[in-house]
Simulated scan of single mutants.
Amino acid sequence: MERKGNLIKLTDLSSDFIIDLKYATPHNFTGVQVYQSADCWLDEHTAQILIKAKEIFEKDGYQVKIWDAYRPIRAQKRFWEIMPNDDFIARPPDMTKIKKFRPTHMNGMCVDVTLTDKEGNEIEMPSPFDTMDERASLNYSGHSETGRRNGEYLKQVMESVGFQAYECEWWHFYDVSTDPAPFSDYEI
């Protein structure tokens, strides 16, 4: 199994995910390809609990689609240059000042996911991925009943295995069930 620090390729552990890393294509809010590779890298513990969630979703007839996972610091800096908005883009870290780490994409301990049916068709969720306004929150009052219900189900299962939902983005989950690894800048 190939490793980069605390990171492993998710497909080395399971091939049962739909990997659609949006930032490995120009089809994202930046309009350009940010990642060099579409390989999905995650912290090993984060990958293990994501597999637990996937198994629950599979029993209920769903597949998991991954839109984002590990993100190098250089990519975070690029996102911040394009959209300096703390609600949707984390400010890039000053690595000379960091004393304590937290789960983020920059250590592979966050994942952006949605659900599909068994054929791989995305199910209705509260909003499209990277909706960068109030509609991205599960708490937004304008969601359809189906979208809200599916978003709540996603949140419930992800939190049951050790993730914590981010209130501003229904698709974003932090691994809060293990100690955070340092941030890194591996080329992906």
Results as ranks from 00 to 15, higher is better:
Met1Gln: 07
Met1Asp: 05
Lys4Gly: 03
Asn6Val: 02
Lys9Trp: 06
Lys9Tyr: 02
Lys9His: 09
Leu13Ser: 06
Asp16Leu: 07
Phe17Asn: 00
Ile19Ala: 05
Leu21Phe: 07
Lys22Met: 11
Tyr23Met: 11
Tyr23Ile: 04
Tyr23Ala: 02
Ala24Gln: 08
Thr25His: 13
His27Ser: 15
Gly31Pro: 03
Gln33Leu: 15
Asp39Ser: 11
Trp41Asn: 00
Glu44Cys: 10
Glu44Asp: 10
Glu44Ile: 12
Ile49His: 02
Leu50Glu: 01
Ile51Cys: 09
Lys52Leu: 07
Lys52Gln: 14
Lys54Thr: 03
Phe57Thr: 00
Glu58Lys: 13
Lys59Trp: 13
Asp60Thr: 10
Tyr62Gly: 02
Val64Pro: 00
Tyr70Pro: 05
Gln76Trp: 01
Arg78Lys: 08
Trp80Tyr: 12
Met83Thr: 15
Pro84Tyr: 15
Asp86Tyr: 14
Phe88Trp: 13
Thr96Met: 12
Thr96Ile: 15
Ile98Phe: 12
Lys100Val: 12
Arg102Glu: 14
Pro103Phe: 00
Thr104Ile: 08
Thr104Arg: 04
Gly108Phe: 04
Gly108Pro: 01
Val111Phe: 00
Val113Asp: 03
Thr114Leu: 09
Asp117Val: 01
Glu119Val: 02
Gly120Asp: 04
Glu122Asn: 12
Glu124Ile: 04
Pro126Phe: 03
Pro128Tyr: 13
Thr131Phe: 12
Thr131Arg: 12
Glu134Pro: 08
Arg135Ala: 06
Arg135His: 15
Ala136Trp: 04
Ala136Asp: 01
Ala136Thr: 01
Ser137Val: 08
Asn139Gly: 10
Tyr140Leu: 07
Ser141Val: 09
His143Gly: 02
Ser144Arg: 06
Gly147Ala: 06
Arg148Leu: 10
Gly151Ala: 05
Gln156Phe: 07
Gln156Glu: 11
Met158Asp: 05
Met158Lys: 05
Met158Pro: 01
Gln164His: 15
Ala165Lys: 10
Tyr166Lys: 14
Cys168Val: 11
Glu169Ala: 13
Glu169Arg: 09
Trp170Leu: 08
Trp171Phe: 11
Trp171Met: 07
His172Glu: 11
Phe173Cys: 01
Phe173Ser: 00
Asp175Arg: 04
Val176Ser: 00
Ser177Leu: 09
Asp179Val: 08
Asp179Ser: 15
Ser184Met: 10
Asp185Thr: 13
Tyr186Ala: 06
